[in-house]
Simulated assay, not measured.
Amino acid sequence: MRDLLTGAVREAVRDAVLDAAAVLLPVDCAGCGRPDRALCPACRVQCTADPVLRRLADGTPVVSALRYEGVVRRAILAFKEEGRTDAARPLARSICVAIEEAAAGALSAEDAGATGGGTAAGLAMPARLELCTVPATRAGRRRRGYRPVDLLVRTAGFRPVTVLTVVAGMVQQKALGREERDSNLRDAMRVRHPPGAAPLLGRRFIVVDDILTTGATLGEAARALHAAGGEVVACATLAFTPRLFGRAASIPGFRA
């Protein structure tokens, strides 16, 4: 009970500070554009995680926190393309849920028994699981000045590993169709290690990205990790595009 009260007090203090800051340094809500905070209370509700499960073509489970539409879409675009890094904290809460659900679902009964089950308090990853973020292109890094996925994951309280890099020649995915995405991403990533014997042998990863569209980006990241000897146990994304990636399964079904 004391922990709950402490959390409530902390939230009240934080809200008071944000209210004062909004008066001194006014900002528009990234979700609806009204003068308020990074995300106004109504848009924060719209960006609350409601995780669902999908699978890549090879069967790898993907947990996504939000539907990429409406307020969620506007908030993510503002964060990624308009420099609204102030929206990272509310969005990070949702990607945190997706990561934790992916980790919990990926653990086998044997793994769960060995690690105490699920994810530990304090946003610790289960033993022997690492978070690998999908790498940004050089052009994207130069344009933004930050890596959106890495910023979200770190803001959520996790420490991702820098394992993958993008091979020169890859173009932006957002204007491409399904087949073009697959072609653009084919062999577009590699591990940040010299070629040779499997440098990731024995390491197990959850691959994290911002938006799941066709699954091509996550599939290529998984291929590169597998080629280096790593194992991809699951993927997690902040949001998914319902129109392109079909219907979701329930998270309880994922855990079963």
Rank of each mutant, 00 (worst) to 15 (best):
R67N: 14
I76F: 03
A106H: 07
C132S: 13
G145L: 05
R159G: 08
T155Y: 09
R142M: 10
A136C: 15
V71L: 10
T119E: 12
E101A: 11
V153S: 06
T155M: 10
P90I: 00
A98D: 04
T165A: 12
G157I: 07
R142A: 10
A109S: 13
P126M: 07
P135M: 09
R128S: 14
D111H: 12
A139S: 10
F158G: 01
Y68G: 10
G113R: 14
F158E: 03
V71M: 10
A104T: 09
L151C: 03
E110F: 11
A103Y: 03
G169K: 04
A114Y: 14
A88W: 02
V134D: 13
T85L: 11
E69P: 05
A109M: 15
A102M: 00
G113Q: 13
R128Y: 13
E82D: 10
R93N: 02
G169Y: 00
E101C: 09
P148D: 01
G105C: 07
R84P: 09
L152P: 06
R67Y: 15
I99P: 03
V149H: 04
A109E: 13
C132W: 11
I76P: 03
S94Y: 00
S64K: 03
G113A: 13
L164A: 03
G116Q: 00
M170S: 08
V171M: 07
G145F: 05
M125R: 06
A102E: 01
M170Q: 01
A139I: 09
V149N: 05
E110N: 10
L152E: 06
L77K: 15
A102Y: 04
E100L: 04
A75I: 01
M125D: 03
E82I: 01
A102S: 08
R128L: 14
G70D: 08
R93E: 08
T162R: 15
A65K: 07
V171H: 11
G70L: 02
P126C: 08
V153E: 04
G70A: 05
T115K: 09
V149A: 10
R143N: 08
E82S: 09
G145R: 08
A168Q: 13
M170E: 05
C132K: 12
T137P: 03
A87Y: 04
R67I: 14
R154G: 07
L77T: 12
I95P: 00
M170F: 00
K80M: 02
C132T: 12
A78G: 06
C132F: 13
R84C: 11
V166A: 12
F158T: 01
R159E: 12
G169N: 02
A127L: 14
V97G: 05
V63M: 05
S108G: 01
A112M: 14
E130T: 10
E100C: 10
G140M: 11
S94K: 02
V166F: 06
G70Q: 04
G116C: 03
C96S: 15
V163K: 09
R154N: 07
A112C: 14
V166H: 04
Y146L: 02
R144E: 04
L107Y: 02
F79R: 06
A109R: 15
A65S: 01
R138F: 02
G83H: 08
R89W: 00
